[in-house]
Each structure stands twice: as structure tokens, then as C-alpha cells.
């Protein structure tokens, strides 16, 4: 396995905050793996994603090291793709879907306008947007939330990044759409050999998608290991409490059956 990214003793302080948002974190991320970062709100999981992508607000204090295995420091947008929770947030309502994609493509790749447009249509096809040729001329508001998130994923992978970060990318979506997007992310990473960093608060979702799971709690990484091991035999009591809080169709019910 080749190392893609190594974090050593990484700490992050947001401007004006006394407590660190990330404290003394060490992590090795390998080429082609799918790592899920699990945690509740305020655990530091999104900070971890942002510090890797260079998306921290100005004035944040970063200590420790971020080492990229092989090659120069990657550029966000080109070598790192980022999908946000809110699918609308990363799309400009005044630009057509085609403009979004061709702009990213031509910024990072040496393409003619015609080739960029053809490549944009391919990308939309990859993320399973029906009728890509027509979708290129449409505007973000003409799509449903799930389809907008697919377009955001197409944008994130347009420049063929080595690392795709999905930051709660399915949390704002309906359960049915959530399952589709999760499947899409898995298929994309498998097909293109992309590394996936999947930030979520949902244990089961992490288990479905990831090779490894890291559990964050109060700015620290409390546990990391192969997904099956973390879910089946968690070592930390915090991980156990997260698993106990998870509800599925086999969980005990809180009320009796209807009379």
C-alpha cells in the first residue's frame, strides 16, 4: 500500500477559540482506500476534512505536519475534490451546469472548449444524471436535491483528483436518495482508484462504505481500525456508546405494539 497522506501531531485552533478543534492527531491515509471519519457535532471531524483540503477560515492556527506521500503538495480542486453537505452551496445559481463543469475542467486540464464540453457530458453520465447533453444547459435549481448532489460530485471529480472528501455529503438528503449517493460514491472510487475520506455521523453508513473507520470525539481520534473490527469489536467505550445509540429495524422498540 502506498501512503497518500500522513498527518503527525496535527492540532487546529480556530481564531478566537480557546479549546482546540483538533488535538494532536495522527493518521495515515493510503492510496485507494475508503476511510470513514465518524463523530458527533463538535467532534472535529469536519475540521479534519477542512485542514486536509486547506479550507480552514483565515486566522486558524495549525500545528503539526501534513505530509503528502509522493509528489508535491496537492492543489485543492485539482488533486483534492470536496463535496459539501448542502448540495446547493457549491453551485452558483446563475451558472448553467455545463458552465460549472467546463470552467473547472479548463482551469485544471489542457482542454479545448469543445473537448471540455464533451468531457462535462461524460462526467454527468458518470454520476448518472439522465440526458447529460440536455442537463449541461440546465441550471442548478432545475434539479432535485439528490441530483444537485450528483452534480456537485461530478464537479469534485472533474479534475481527476487523487483524494475525494465527502463532508456529510448525504446528511441533508432523504434516506432513499442517501442510499443512491452512497452507492455512487463507492462505485466511483472503485472504478477510478480514488481515495475517499467520508465524513459522517452515521455508524451504519460508514460501515456500508468504508474499509476503515476512525472515530472522533472531543477533537481527538479515539479509535481507528478496519470497519468490520470497529463495528464488531470496538475497543473504546465511546465507540460502544455510539453503536448502542444507533437505531435500525432490529433495535428494541420504546412502545408496545398497537392494540
Amino acid at each position: 500500500m502506498t501512503l497518500l497522506l500522513g498527518l503527525t501531531g496535527l492540532s487546529v485552533h480556530y481564531p478566537g477559540a480557546s479549546a482546540p478543534a483538533l488535538a494532536d492527531l495522527g493518521l495515515a491515509l493510503f492510496e485507494g482506500e475508503k476511510l470513514a471519519i465518524i463523530g458527533e457535532s463538535g467532534s472535529g471531524k469536519s475540521t479534519l476534512a477542512r485542514v486536509i483540503a486547506g479550507l480552514l477560515p483565515p486566522g486558524s492556527r495549525i500545528e503539526g505536519r501534513i505530509d503528502w506521500g509522493g509528489g508535491p503538495t496537492p492543489r485543492p480542486g485539482r488533486d483534492i475534490g470536496y463535496v459539501f453537505q448542502d448540495p446547493g452551496g457549491s453551485l452558483n445559481p446563475l451558472l448553467s451546469v455545463g458552465r460549472h463543469l467546463t470552467e473547472v475542467l479548463r482551469t485544471h486540464l489542457p482542454l479545448t472548449a469543445r473537448d471540455a464540453r464533451a468531457r462535462a457530458a461524460e462526467l454527468l453520465d458518470t454520476v448518472q444524471i439522465p440526458d447529460p447533453a440536455r442537463a449541461l444547459n440546465a441550471y442548478p435549481h432545475q434539479f432535485s436535491g439528490g441530483q444537485r448532489q450528483r452534480i456537485a460530485i461530478a464537479l469534485a471529480i472533474a479534475a481527476r483528483p487523487r483524494l475525494l472528501i465527502a463532508d456529510e455529503a448525504t446528511s441533508a438528503l432523504d434516506v432513499l436518495v442517501q442510499a443512491e449517493i452512497t452507492a455512487l460514491l463507492r462505485a466511483l472510487c472503485d472504478a477510478k482508484g480514488m481515495t475517499l475520506l467520508f465524513i459522517t455521523h452515521d455508524m451504519a453508513l460508514a460501515g456500508q462504505l468504508a474499509d476503515r473507520i476512525a472515530v472522533m470525539h472531543a477533537a481527538r481520534m479515539v479509535e481507528i481500525g478496519p470497519a468490520a473490527r470497529v463495528l464488531r469489536a470496538p475497543r473504546e467505550s465511546y465507540t460502544r456508546s455510539l453503536l448502542a445509540a444507533h437505531l435500525d429495524l432490529a433495535s428494541p422498540r420504546l412502545v408496545g405494539e398497537a392494540r
Binding site: 432513499l176 456500508q208 463495528l231
Partner: peptide, 17 residues
């Protein structure tokens, strides 16, 4: 049926805590 299928489950027995 689709809603039932979409519920993410942890594919292991419940861990005794």
C-alpha cells in the same frame, strides 16, 4: 419496501456492552 431497504444497518450482531 424501498424505505425498509434504505435503512442502513450495522451488519453485525449487537455488541454486548
Amino acid at each position: 419496501r424501498r424505505l425498509i431497504a434504505a435503512v442502513p444497518t450495522i451488519h453485525t450482531e449487537k455488541v454486548p456492552s
